[in-house]
């Protein structure tokens, strides 16, 4: 019996002693933290993707609390709703930013862009890009080895095995920008989602001269300036034989799409066109929409 009592007493004493030490230490080393940091952090999506430019949600929360205004601070994953919530907690105003989504600016499928050699190195775009221009005649286009897929924390981008090009799952994409950084060819761009997810963009990044680009890929932008001429809003610029549509200026009129001789301008999520373009009325309607 005495053994039992001794055991219980000893263990109890050790426990009590340890508890006391832990309490004292935790008091001594207590870090005074602004309680709002935790609140803000709770409002964030906890994806820790780094899309905001900070190492994780916690440091983003700390930055939000510390900053004078919320200008330039944006959680791409949570979007406007989350930032409004954060603003409410801090009693500030969130800057308005349009929701964005990743677009892949290459349409060079296996059919459109014939493979000229076989890549046999490590299955990694960055390794291949450091080695050479790629397995097609186009040294700007997608290598199809999936660095973007590996970088995505949201399972929102996949390589289509038929085209060997990545495809973005719009609903899952949070525009965190990880794939943009991961792509060694700078093919992926964050663009405004647009009304009803409607977007128009040049799906090519080839800066070669027109003839060279066309020889390498049927759907390459050849820098012919036709789209630039037809655009009523001066949204299209051409630099280094490559067209670019500014999504701040583009009003989604779709005039540039049919004039492109190589079909390198893509339109997404639009209703099907009427068979006989041009149909001025329909287009004007889209402009106002």
């Amino acid at each position: 019996m005495s053994v039992l009592i001794t055991a219980v007493a000893t263990l109890g004493a050790i426990g009590a002693g340890s508890a006391a030490i832990l309490y004292l230490v935790s008091q001594k080393f207590k870090v005074e933290e602004d309680p709002r940091i935790q609140e803000v952090q709770d409002a964030l999506p906890a994806a820790n993707c780094g899309g905001c430019g900070f190492p994780g949600c916690a440091s983003f929360a700390a930055a939000c609390v510390k900053a004078e205004t919320l200008d330039g601070l944006n959680c791409p994953v949570g979007g406007q709703e989350t930032m409004d919530h954060v603003a409410a907690i801090l009693g500030r105003k969130a800057s308005v930013s349009a929701k964005k989504v990743a677009v892949v600016r290459c349409s060079g499928t296996c059919d459109e862009r014939p493979r000229l050699n076989l890549y046999d190195g490590a299955s990694n775009c960055a390794v291949a890009a450091a080695l050479y221009g790629g397995d097609t005649g186009c040294s700007f286009g997608c290598l199809g080895l999936g660095d973007c897929v590996d970088s995505c924390a949201f399972d929102a981008i996949h390589i289509n095995p038929e085209t060997m090009l990545p495809e973005v799952v719009e609903d899952k994409c949070t525009a965190c920008g990880a794939c943009v950084k991961a792509c060694p060819k700078d093919i992926i761009e964050l663009r405004k989602v647009g009304p009803k997810s409607r977007r128009i963009y040049v799906s090519c990044v080839n800066k070669d001269k027109g003839a060279v680009a066309k020889k390498a890929c049927n759907v390459a932008c050849i820098g012919c300036t036709k789209c630039q001429q037809v655009c009523p809003f001066e949204a299209i610029t051409i630099e280094n034989n490559l067209a670019f549509i500014d999504d701040d200026k583009c009003r989604l009129c779709r005039k540039c799409v049919p004039v492109c001789p190589t079909n390198s301008i893509l339109e997404l999520n639009f209703p099907p066109r009427k068979e006989t373009p041009p149909a001025p009325k329909g287009e004007e309607a889209t402009v106002t929409a």
Binding site: G121, A122, N124, A126, V127, A130
Partner: peptide, 12 residues
């Protein structure tokens, strides 16, 4: 294993 492929990348 493609050791050098990756090391070269990392070195850069």
């Amino acid at each position: 294993r493609p050791l050098l492929d990756y090391i070269r990348l990392g070195k850069g």
